[in-house]
Design a binder for these strands. Structure first.
Lengths: 187, 187
DNA sequence: TTACGATACGGAACAATGTTCCGGTTATCA
DNA sequence: TGATAACCGGAACATTGTTCCGTATCGTAA
């Protein structure tokens, strides 16, 4: 593996320009902003975007990779730092929710079944699902959770609850996620 | 009110043809099927659709109006039939969830902030929110609910949990909604 | 330094879909 | 039956995703 030679210098520059431009545009117009808008912001053609990031999900993943990884690392850390696994799960979910709600439209995109966002769903699952599963298992073993819900279902549920226009003071995803977690403790 | 003369007979016929065609297409392709597809199924031009149903939400509302109204009527009935207001709320939510998950993409559309679906959100809220609020208030007064969540937030949360591809056996909205309702009883 | 092949670039071109608009048609009524 | 207002169909336009190819640039070897 690692076949193929390294990229050309201008290609590398463009990749960086694209990442910066995408981060900027995502902030303003959301993760489903038109490709042309990102291309214009970066000062490149649309072809260059597709060459570097074949699907939109690839671009989103690249932009938010650091933050996702931070969430991945937080799982085991919280589990070791805190007495209660359930409390660790709660704090980890807080991080996850914060991440989702601060990225305009990301939660919506994560569960979307169109526009080449499937890969995004897959990436998040691949990285975060094991972390969540560990937290869930630990809390269950500690007898702090009565439900037998699976990690996948829980994450999808949390992700779905985070969907919504931001700035809506009458809908706070955090309140609902808290209710959901409360529900884990048994009826 | 009721100003304006009655519609022409061909206009009425087309309206019926459109409702039947839309119901058919929604079943197969979901509520965000292309307008042209619905027009073709009905055997009319796209202009005719826009004349009868200016926004996509208007068409969706017209197609599902009966079922929404059934849900509206079920609220007070359950409340009077059952001893426990919380149980009434649970059963009513069951009806609501059944309705959402059996309509391909409806839950998704309800919270969408684009494509002229805002009116759909508004219609559902206008009809169902008071019903949900009554159930919630009754359950709270009966001391069966500890949370001080508002009806709007609860309905949005339930709606969001119902978003997802159907046929996914690993994600069951009903299980998550149950957890959410369990959470209402207090942590 | 220059020439050449590989690589990457930009944007035109095509496809899918939403939406508007208008010339022609039809229903209604006097 | 004829006038007219309402209505119809679909062409035309706008937006966005995606592909493709002629051209420009980079890296390298002579």
């Amino acid at each position: 593996m690692e076949a193929g030679r390294s990229k050309r210098s201008d290609a590398l520059r463009n990749e960086q320009k694209l990442l910066a431009a995408a981060a900027e545009v995502f902030l303003v117009s959301g993760v489903d902003a038109p490709i042309r808008e990102i291309a214009a912001q970066a000062g490149v053609g649309t072809g260059t975007i597709y060459r570097n990031f074949p699907t939109r999900a690839d671009l989103v993943v690249a932009v938010y990779r650091h933050q996702v990884e931070a969430c991945v690392e937080a799982g085991p850390r919280l589990l070791s730092e805190l007495e209660s696994p359930l409390e660790a799960l709660r704090q980890w979910v807080d991080l996850f929710v914060d991440f989702l709600v601060t990225k305009h439209g990301l939660a919506h995109a994560m569960q979307s079944d169109s526009s080449g966002f499937e890969a995004l769903h897959g990436y998040f699952l691949e990285r975060l699902l094991p972390v969540c599963a560990d937290l869930l298992t630990a809390a269950t073993k500690a007898g702090e959770i009565a439900s037998d819900i699976q990690a996948y279902e829980l994450m999808r549920g949390i992700g779905n609850l985070c969907i919504g226009r931001e700035g809506d003071t009458t809908y706070d995803p955090r309140r609902l996620v808290k209710l959901l977690l409360d529900g884990l403790q048994g009826s």
